[in-house]
Design a protein around this nucleic acid. Structure first.
Lengths: 214, 214
DNA sequence: TAGATTGTTAATCGATTAACAATC
DNA sequence: TAGATTGTTAATCGATTAACAATC
């Protein structure tokens, strides 16, 4: 898992996440059965990713396979979990208790990957103090202090575009280094802050563009 | 807008969507003021996309600018709307009336880009017949016929991973050609079907990978 | 040994960007 | 005319993939 981590394309990380998800499911269903290894060819068939690409992606991080045999499934799952940091607990907050925020809180993937949702933040006084899925909604004014106090590492931005930059700034001021942004704007933050954008508009426009071609 | 549309990278389309969003907002705030044109340099500053890239992306579709001057804002907005197919009405359905489905129905971006949400589908009998945001929830059994009857063009998949492929198949059988998929699986469909995936897990794993590096 | 499959090199492909002539 | 900025060519950069020696 160590090896030379310089210059690993971020698309490789995205693909590792796909391999991980598939192999995890596979190792569940294969528990007790005798499928112990898997080839890059087989991974390719399921994920639709070229088998050379699969081998290359994995080779960035170590020699996990055996020539002539393939990759030992359980070990590969374990290694991928380590590489992706999914063997640790991560503390997160969600900002924005609207429909999207609610949907996110109920999202099972957080628990699955050991994410602890420590709090929800909103500026709507009718929501503050209430709970969603047993997690308290706090005043967004108290967010920065909360982040510092609880050592929150990941912030999820589910607020409207016009307040997103402002809240992102406060997240960073509090010490957050990773942001998942659902607001449709380009956040301007220090380069060391990792930002991942989920942008519905872009995806929708992508669909209509292609529909419109015909 | 015509020109040679062969081999336009899909990342270009994504960027056009970003330009469009920014310029649309700009043309709103500049209404009545006298900023009539904008340079690729200025677009670059706001969007973070290299100015040569901006010019190249636009040049795929026509010569919208004037040398020495820049691009006329209002015209460019109009052209982008045409290119992205946002000058038409598109009929869509949402499958899955869970939290995510609800969040999507309330999403303002649909109305903004002329999307008509014609129906919601679910298999939970306690939900069928009810309404969300004034849109009726139907039995997923009736989906295929509904798509055919209403000429639905876009399907949004907000269901669990294990039923996603099955429902996607039925969407295609009904005549849908574009799918926005929120389920964390790789849908296997005919190549002519345009699929856009929104995958939370991949985004989250991307964050923890980078957090874990330090 | 023969067949399978990895890990890696080298070739290919495609996208980004620098540079600049054209021109407003 | 001088300055600004486009549209486009050519160079660069980076990612994907074909090919194959190594080896189980």
């Amino acid at each position: 898992m160590k090896k030379n981590r310089t210059r690993i394309p971020s698309v490789t990380i995205n693909r590792l996440s796909i391999y991980y998800r598939y192999l995890e499911r596979l190792s569940e269903t294969e528990k007790g059965r005798n499928l112990k290894t898997i080839s890059s060819q087989k991974i390719s068939q399921i994920t639709g990713i070229n088998s050379t690409q699969v081998r290359k992606d994995l080779a960035y991080f170590g020699e996990f396979g055996k020539r002539g045999i393939g990759y030992p499934i359980n070990n590969l799952v374990k290694e991928l979990r380590k590489i992706l940091g999914l063997d640790k607990k991560w503390k997160i907050i969600i900002v924005g208790a609207g429909n999207l925020g609610k949907a996110l809180i109920n999202y099972q993937g957080f628990k699955k990957r050991g994410f602890l949702v420590k709090g929800i933040f909103d500026n709507n006084s009718t929501k503050i103090g209430k709970k969603i899925d047993n997690i308290l909604i706090y005043d967004v004014k108290d967010m920065e202090e909360f982040i510092r106090e609880w050592n929150i590492q990941i912030g999820i931005l589910a607020v409207p575009a016009n307040s997103a930059q402002n809240i992102a700034n406060k997240m960073v001021a509090g010490g957050i280094e990773s942001i998942l942004n659902f607001a449709p704007i380009c956040l301007k933050l220090l380069p060391k802050i990792k930002i991942n954008n989920v942008d519905l508009s872009i995806e929708l426009d992508g669909l209509t563009y292609y529909l419109n071609l015909w």
